[in-house]
Design a binder for these strands. Sequence first.
DNA 1: GCGAAGGTGTAATGATCATTACACCATTGT
DNA 2: ACAATGGTGTAATGATCATTACACCTTCGC
Lengths: 210, 210
Amino acid sequence: MTPLPDDLRLDRRRKAIIAAARELFVEQGYERATLAEIVTRAGGSLATVYKLFGNKDQLLEAVVFESAGSGEAVIREAAAAGLAPVPTLHRIAKGLHEHFLDPEVIALVRIVIARSISDPQFARQFFERTANPTRDALETVFARWQADGVAMDGTPGFLAEMFMGLFVSDLQTQAISHGLGISPLPDRLQERTNFFIAAAGINQLAESAA
Amino acid sequence: MTPLPDDLRLDRRRKAIIAAARELFVEQGYERATLAEIVTRAGGSLATVYKLFGNKDQLLEAVVFESAGSGEAVIREAAAAGLAPVPTLHRIAKGLHEHFLDPEVIALVRIVIARSISDPQFARQFFERTANPTRDALETVFARWQADGVAMDGTPGFLAEMFMGLFVSDLQTQAISHGLGISPLPDRLQERTNFFIAAAGINQLAESAA
DNA sequence: GCGAAGGTGTAATGATCATTACACCATTGT
DNA sequence: ACAATGGTGTAATGATCATTACACCTTCGC
């Protein structure tokens, strides 16, 4: 889907258009954002947009799929620090919170959900590329802890799902409904993490075998 | 907002229009649903829609606010059955699951989220009228249990929030992203409830003092 | 310098509705 | 029966864009 590596001009144009489109989509949503305004911000010409992306829908897809990352990196870093499970979980919670409650991410999620009405595949793909890798990274961490002898109630997969529910789904839903200002404060985040730790039956004293 | 109780004709018209609008909004979303089609299904005339609702936006508001209920009733009923906390929680979980994962409710949530981009107040009001009463009803139940001597880790408010996160936000997010077919099976629901019970430190043997 | 190949700017084109206007029909109370 | 009051049907009106068409520049290899 990204041919013409021989021509740098096109590539630069493409990046500029995606950046402007992302900006406008985040500001106004998909429907309200007009291609004319995107072109105004990106510079260049409407014809180029059509040459590169085909139509507005495909431009959105490109923007979303090139923009939205997952929480994988955050989880790997936290796990690699070699801390005990409990402080590691606190660190992961904070990292996921920062990543998934970023206003731009929230704005993209809103757009994806809005489009899920007419295009369910699009929503599914989006979550498969963002939530799933995050969930899987968590699962991997939990599985390693279990293998290292840390007591945990539940399979790594189930616990990863619960963690995602408490720290991604629920917080995003709150962000969407109450506006971004009311996102949980750090201490409320800790309270949540402790809730998870209690449910998972993780021994507060367990040490990582990293 | 519902004047003219003296005239039944208008009231009947109003109900028919709301029903047709709700149906079409659920099927196609807000943007795609046209007033012309709504009128076709409801019978009557476009002019009446404008007389009764003013414009399409206000029609949507009427539909959403007259359609979306909360999970209060489910919670009250479960609590009133006089069972012990643990089976009561299982019952509440099942009830909330049925209520909030109803395809029509999910469709309305999608619409509300889509509109939250341009109209944050609308989304806030919606959640205040659906999620908040549910949360408050839960909090009341938990508080009564605590007063009755059931051991629980955490304030009733916090536990209610966690419960909502696990049984409403997260499941709705999954329904939106994966489609409605993949909503959790009953046994997965039980697993979730047990997770919550463990986190809240509720004694499995605790009896309700009802 | 030169001539493509590829951009650029601008102006149609066309479709889709929300919204409004208007002339006509039905019901209801007297 | 007889106006009203209120509803109905249909046809403008207007606005908003996505999408397309086209004539004109630029840049780059040669």
